[in-house]
Amino acid sequence: MTQTLQGIAPISHLGVIRVQGDDAASFLHGQLTNDFALLDLQHARLAAFCSAKGRMQASMIGFKRAPDDILLVCSLDLLAQTLKRLSMFVLRAKAKLTDATQDFQLLGLMGSAVPDAAQAPWAVQTMGDAHLVHLYPAAGQPRALWVAPAGTAAPQGPALSAQQWLWTEVASGIATVSLSAYELFVPQMLNYESVGGVNFKKGCYPGQEVVARSQFRGTLKRRAFIVHAASEIQAGAEVFAASDAEQATGTIVQAAPAPDGGWDAIVSMQISSAQEALTAGSASGEPLTLLPLPYALLEDI
């Protein structure tokens, strides 16, 4: 039985890209996997920024502070290169992109620390100068991302550690793409289409044809799964199935120590390996136990 985590955690592994200007939403609409053209002030978007081959170069949660002011929260170790590459596509659009990590503070809220916990994932509440983005739950507990200008008084509640928050990210089943996962996956290999991260009805963006083909032609052979190990496992490590000791079946995307001991991780791997014995690092490595996903997968179209 997983112990219940309640409280507020510091977040230092994520950064903020700020996009300002009259064309901020339309510009992002043409670059990311989700619909930013119809984004309102009450919702956020999970999205991927892909290469021309449809491989994820970053993932982000985006929301509007104002009609011409959008924040993108992404992995800090990919922020600089993501900002640089996104800026290359601005051209004549009225959109200015900046690294605003130092201008905002991020906190993770879990369990009883989440106000109005019945809100659906990706709903946004405005709380003075702060914005609260409701996330997918972990271990049945509500989660939210609190984003506010630097210096804003933080909400009050029990303290959670950064490591505990990282575990809630793993337990939610929604991976954040970091440097170790750069250009390894199309969005569906991390289940992004099943958690609101891909809009198949919107127009073109880099890699759109590959992402659409993976969905509509039934060519997707990898998915994201949650696993548990008795000992430490790390992002970037390969995963092996019992049927093939030579060829890895997947990769650990994100890992964190579990509250009750051991480590939990999100693994992107061959769907066909889900019924096999799994190990991390090598065929004789740390045994992995498959855990249930906390959300349903969207059926292939």
Rank of each mutant, 00 (worst) to 15 (best):
Q3P: 04
L5G: 10
Q6F: 13
H13M: 04
H13Q: 14
L14M: 04
G15I: 08
V16M: 00
I17M: 07
V19G: 00
G21E: 07
A24N: 08
A24Q: 00
A24K: 03
S26C: 08
L28E: 12
G30F: 01
N34E: 08
F36C: 01
A37F: 03
A37P: 01
L46A: 09
C50A: 01
A52W: 12
R55G: 11
S59D: 13
M60C: 09
I61D: 02
F63V: 07
K64E: 02
P67M: 01
D69V: 05
C74R: 00
Q81E: 08
T82Q: 15
L83E: 14
R92M: 11
A93N: 12
T98L: 01
A100P: 11
Q105R: 06
M110G: 00
A113Y: 08
V114C: 02
A118R: 01
G128I: 05
H131K: 15
L132Y: 06
L132T: 04
L135E: 15
L135F: 03
Y136S: 15
P137K: 07
Q141M: 09
Q141Y: 02
W146R: 06
A150T: 15
G151M: 08
T152D: 07
A154N: 05
A154S: 15
P155I: 00
Q156L: 13
P158L: 05
A159N: 11
A159E: 14
A159G: 04
A162P: 00
W167A: 06
S172G: 08
G173A: 03
I174M: 10
S178P: 01
A181M: 12
L184I: 07
V186T: 10
E193V: 12
E193T: 01
V195S: 03
G197Q: 05
Y205P: 01
Y205L: 06
Q208H: 06
Q215F: 15
F225S: 07
F225P: 04
A229H: 07
I233D: 09
A242E: 15
A242S: 15
E246C: 01
E246Y: 03
T249E: 10
G250C: 09
T251C: 04
I252M: 01
Q254H: 13
A256S: 13
A256K: 09
P257N: 14
A258H: 15
P259A: 09
G262D: 00
D264L: 06
V267W: 11
S268I: 13
I271Q: 11
A277Q: 14
A280Q: 05
G281P: 02
A283M: 05
E286S: 09
Y295R: 04
L297T: 13
L298Q: 15
L298V: 14
